[in-house]
Computed example of a mutant assay.
Amino acid sequence: MGDRPQGYFTEENSTDVVTSQIADTTEPRLAEVMGAITRHLHAAVKEIEPTQEEWLQAIKFLTKTGHKSDDWRQEFILLSDIMGVSMLVDAINNRKPSGASESTVLGPFHVPDVPQSPMGANICLDGKGHPMLIKGRILDIEGAPIDGCKIDVWQTNDDGFYDVQQKGIQPDFNLRGVFQTGADGVYHFWGAKPRFYPIPDDGPVGQLLGALGRHPFRPAHLHYILEAQGFETLVTHIFDPDDEYIHSDAVFGVKESLLAKFDLIKDPKRIAAEQADGPFYEVIHDFVLADTA
Rank of each mutant, 00 (worst) to 15 (best):
E32R: 13
E32V: 09
M34D: 06
M34F: 14
M34G: 04
G35F: 07
A36L: 15
I37L: 15
I37F: 15
T38S: 11
T38L: 06
R39T: 09
H40P: 01
H40F: 09
L41Y: 11
H42E: 14
H42V: 15
H42A: 14
A43D: 08
A43R: 07
A43F: 04
V45Y: 08
K46L: 03
I48G: 01
E49I: 04
E49V: 04
P50I: 02
T51D: 01
Q52A: 13
E53L: 03
E54T: 00
W55G: 02
W55P: 00
L56D: 03
L56R: 04
Q57F: 10
I59V: 12
I59K: 11
K60C: 04
K60W: 08
T63E: 13
T63I: 11
K64T: 09
K64Y: 13
K68D: 14
D70L: 09
W72E: 14
W72R: 12
R73T: 06
Q74C: 09
Q74I: 05
E75W: 00
I77N: 01
I77E: 01
L79E: 00
D81C: 01
I82P: 00
M83Y: 05
G84R: 01
G84A: 03
G84T: 01
V85W: 06
S86R: 00
M87L: 07
M87S: 05
D90A: 04
A91V: 02
A91M: 06
I92L: 12
I92S: 05
N93I: 02
N93E: 08
K96A: 08
K96V: 08
P97D: 11
P97S: 14
S98Q: 15
G99P: 09
G99D: 09
G99T: 11
A100K: 10
A100S: 13
S101W: 09
S103A: 15
S103W: 13
T104S: 15
T104D: 08
T104Y: 11
V105R: 03
L106A: 12
L106T: 06
G107N: 00
G107E: 00
P108Q: 06
P112L: 14
P112R: 14
P112E: 15
D113P: 08
D113V: 11
V114C: 11
V114N: 06
V114Y: 07
